[in-house]
Design a protein around this nucleic acid. Sequence first.
DNA 1: GAGCACTGC
Length: 700
Amino acid sequence: MSLKFWKPGTAGPGSSLDRDTQNEENVVQSTLAYSSLSIQSQRERLPIYKHREKLLYCTDKYGVIIVVGQTGSGKTTQLPQYLMEAGWASENNVIACTQPRRVAATSVAGRVATEVGSLLGDEVGYTIRFEDVSDKQRTRILYMTDGMLFRETLVDPLLSRYSVIMLDEAHERSLYTDLLLGVLKKIRRKRPSLRLIVSSATLDAASFLDYFSDTTSPNDAIIVSLEGRMFPVEVAYLQQPVPDYVSAAANTAFEINSKHGPGDILIFLTGREEIDRCLEELSELAPKQVTCSMIKIISDNSSRTPRSAPRLVLLPLHAGLTTEEQLAVFEPAEKGTRKVIVSTNIAEASVTIEGIKFVVDSGFVKIRVYNPTTGLASLSTVPTSVASAIQRSGRAGRTSPGICYRLFTQETFERLPYSTPPEITRTDMTTPLLQLKSLGIDNIMKFEWVSAPPAESVLRALESLFAAGMIGEDGRLTPVGQKVAECPVDVGIARMLFSSKDFQCGEEILTIAAMCSVQDVFIIPDGAQGALAELERRKFTAEEGDHLTLLNVYNAFTRYGRSSGWCKSHALSFRGLSRAVSIRAQLKKYMQRFNLPLESCQGDAKRLRRCLVSGYWRNGARWVGDGTFRSVRGNRTLYVHPTSVLFTRKPRSGWVVFHEMEETKKTQIRIITEIEPEWLLDHGHRYEDNRVTTNAVAVG
DNA sequence: GAGCACTGC
């Protein structure tokens, strides 16, 4: 198959990027293609320096500055330093800069500390969950995850220690960025001296400007644009759509290898299955391959490859890989070889690989979508957005000019949505609403969202909070709701922690809560090794179900010295279990603060399971003859997830509770424990009675 | 009878 690409006359679709930008006067033209001078190490030569005075002037005169700048403009590292030099961090004021990801917060803080000549954690620091490398008195510039700053609002609702807050990567619209935008707009009314810097991509700048320029403060916000330090990236579109973008991606990479000079290739697909198939097809195109390891396939020059073409080094990249496997993509290609990295969306923003000259973009992405009507989350493959396509193509221009091959037509590109719907519109709002209520924001409908969550989502969340006893009939927080709002866990898990006092099983529930908060700790590879891993897993199996199995795993992990070697020999994830240890330690502090005893149930599994029901009572299910379950609420057909120990056995009592359900091809339940049906009745009645009363009041 | 986009507290 030969694919026909078409390159528009100009470099990149830059001219069409500004169609959404209304405030032209304030916007310095910024396009994907920007010719760079040679890379300078002195920060004075960073393009942002030209805008230093303007940025400081705007920070003086305006409350909200929307900064538009590409990767490489230096905004994240330089802007906080300019602000500090200009005195914004004097008198014990702190300049905060939030990031959606932990690695970004830590690595940027390290770089800036070096530039400032500070020890990390002294004048420049960072705060992420489980790690606070900052000094309460001395730190002037603080990088942090957006979730951490939002958490801080629960303790200090006016965020009074900060003079300037920069929300970096705001265009990504993470859940916490959106919550912070709403809360910070409110804070600025009470504390106008607080400066807000919102870092955004070109496409979203106008909507942020609208959001902050309301009638009460029409001239409070301004857009400032910075050039990026990117090399030009040529964009090629398919002339005709293709039926199978996975094959098309493999073919395109193969053709790039035959026709173009040096430079690595990055392919964007949606998931592990597609990545594996693409790697397979690529190795078939170059048949004399040599498989070096599970993750690295080197293809030799084949008859179809011109003599001059380099050999291909094929590398998968997705979050399911171990750390070592992920690190392989950063190793420079050996002489005479060319790397082909076949990746999920992880390479779009989370992971940056230098030396990429060619990007192949499938135009699709897998996103998690929450259905508030059914309460089900599902993963669906959807077309990417314009913003995403631009971000992906930009990955080709980090170290030299590059080319991006889009596996769709230009007409398709022009019909793409500008951006992916913000997370807040497609996620369960139960915990976020509890936290907003804890901040004193009771009228959720009147809260000024940048993008409002769907009304059904809000109603469902309120109903869950009421059912869990976190809010009363008046919609206000109950005393337990106030406490739970501070805990970094789901409300169901929090209820279990609180009722562990009655069942005298705090020790065990704490462990289970931590283990339920990490991703699957069992590593089951394909093939023969998978069968061995299954045997390892059986060693931990508790017949009561997955919760107790997870408890066994955790206890064994700590008993054998928390060693990575032990994990490897038992097919367990060291990363996951170490994280569980941290989470458990954190939750333990909350339990101590709330005077919840840390008693052990001394092996009494019944007490433990009754305690689980206190958190999961709305997640009950009943076995039916054909091997599936029916949910107590909604009578939905549920399939057991293959990772469950109940996948292969029928529960003796016929009844279970489960941690979560998710829609894939079928509705599946994960982390399941067998229960006695009458235990469910301990919890439902009062809630149902209340609901009848509430409805009667509403009707009356 | 068979599965896992990516973050974050």
